[in-house]
Design a protein around this nucleic acid. Structure first.
Length: 423
RNA sequence: GGAGAUGUGGCCGAGCGGUCGAAGGCGGUUGACUCGAAAUCAACUGAACGAGUUUUCGUUCCUAGAGUUCAAAUCUCUACAUCUCCGCCA
């Protein structure tokens, strides 16, 4: 959520980035609603001050045994007037809040302007795509032949876009989770968290998935609980509604969780294989820091994610998401895209974002500066560290051999009890 | 799931329907004392919103929401959470 004061005093700027985001949201109503709000607050506070004073006088009169009926008569009607105004005020504030909650974040000056994913500039590239002496197969062919993935059984147990991992496949998924968590906790300084996998609506509003993107989420029947679409949600909300001390910042959190997404609107995309599932595993990284350091922290966060790919020796590149492709709550996002030989292109495997104070304002996450000044909203960042299922895909495809076996990346061998090859 | 108890500021803990943002303590900050520290003493010590913006004034917040009243931390109702006992269960 953006600060209403910021919006009203920078209307043109706000309209500019709405346009850059391909949003046709009309924010002119905000001006009117806000002045209406101020007017009602002034009126109701005057009345309340009058009532408080009257009530105080009644109290004093009563203690000296005076008759208070006349005084009561004087302020009797104030209560009704106040109630009417308060209701009006609540209406206006709800309307205002509703609109504010649907306005996307502003953009960093370093976020390129562009229409869609084709306009995302490549920032850097790491590694060389391997030259195959044979036609590389897609991961689903290899994995099914090796008996480490069962797509039919996944569908049978749940529905399409669910998969069963078996034997070395299941084992490698677990190995990757442990490898990533060890890397982030031991090398990168993150605290390991295991959060709830279901959260309340207010929590999803805090990070921005609600109210706008309910159709992407799974909701529990008859309860105010939703399955998390990413660990970003519980991790970022971990310190919500509190005032942190600057000396305790930055906070680094990492967690492994399954993620649940409806994938509404992606019909027909990546229907084969493990690429786009309703349930997938992810190791997430979240940071809470001061405004002064958040862009520096974004660079570090991104390189923490890159380290996973470097150590696993998977070629990738980093793109800077343009204004038309960037997420609702992010000011700046780097996507890591890993090389997939069967598709002959780079595919998203991590997304690292600086949300500045957008989420913090929604969840009332503040900190007190060391100099004792006024409380400020913290900055929040999140990044995949990284998507586990897609890493498994990348390993299978990049490490495949002509005979259908797959080598295990060096760094992963200890996590596989010394297994060097799945055949 | 059933029965009972409880829910006050960073923490502990008072609080008769009236002058309570809330006694007292702990913690924290600053100052005094000290070569320094500890101890001691003193002062200060929540947030948000609105108006003015140098000092200020007003409103709201005692788990959340609703109600009674001129007035609610204090009374009523509902929800949620915690604790104890019983049941069930990984």
């Amino acid at each position: 959520m953006l600060d209403i004061k910021y919006i009203l005093s920078n209307l043109d700027e706000v309209k500019g980035f709405l346009k850059a985001r391909n949003s046709d949201l009309n924010i002119d109503v905000l001006t009117e609603l806000d002045s209406k709000r101020r007017k009602i607050i002034g009126e109701t506070e005057d009345l309340k001050a009058k009532r408080n004073e009257g009530s105080k006088r009644i109290g004093m009169a009563k203690s000296t045994g005076e008759d208070v009926n006349a005084l009561k008569e004087q302020i009797k009607d104030l209560g009704d007037e106040i109630k009417t105004l308060d209701t009006e005020l609540a209406d206006v504030e709800n309307k205002l809040h509703e609109i504010l909650m649907t306005i996307p974040n502003k953009l960093s000056p370093t976020t390129p302007i562009g229409k869609d994913e084709n306009d995302n500039p490549v920032v850097r590239t790491w590694g060389e795509p391997r030259k195959f002496s044979f036609e590389p197969k897609p991961h689903w062919d290899i994995a099914e032949a090796l008996g480490i993935m069962d797509f039919e059984r996944g569908v049978n147990l749940a529905q399409s876009r669910f998969t069963v991992l078996k034997n070395a496949g299941a084992r490698m998924e677990r190995a990757l989770v442990n490898f990533m968590l060890d890397l982030h906790t031991k090398q990168h300084g993150y605290q390991e968290i295991e959060p709830p996998f279901m959260v309340r609506s207010a929590i999803l509003e805090g990070t921005g998935q609600l109210p706008k993107f309910a159709e992407d989420l799974y909701k529990i029947n008859n309860e105010d609980l939703w399955l998390i679409p990413t660990a970003e949600v519980p991790l970022t909300n971990l310190n919500r509604e509190s005032i942190l001390e600057e000396k305790d910042l930055p906070l680094y959190y990492t967690a492994y969780t399954p993620c649940f997404r409806r994938e509404a609107g992606s019909a027909g995309r990546d229907v084969r294989g493990l690429m786009r599932q309703h349930q997938f595993d992810k190791v997430e990284m979240v940071k809470i820091c001061t405004p002064e350091t958040s862009y520096e922290e974004l660079e570090k966060l991104t390189s923490n994610a890159e380290d996973v790919l470097k150590i696993l020796e998977l070629p990738y590149h980093v793109v800077n998401l343009c204004s038309g492709d960037i997420g609702f709550g992010s000011c700046k996002t780097y996507d890591l895209e890993v090389w997939l030989p069967s598709q002959n292109k780079y595919r998203e495997i991590s997304s690292c974002s600086n949300c500045e104070d957008f989420q913090a304002r929604r969840m009332n996450l503040r900190y007190r500066p060391s100099d004792g000044g006024k409380t400020r909203f913290a900055h929040t960042l999140n990044g995949s560290g990284i998507a586990v299922g897609r890493t498994l895909i990348a390993i299978i495809e990049n490490y495949q051999n002509e005979d259908g076996s797959i080598n295990i990346p060096k760094a992963l061998i200890p996590y596989m009890d010394g297994l060097t090859c799945v055949r």
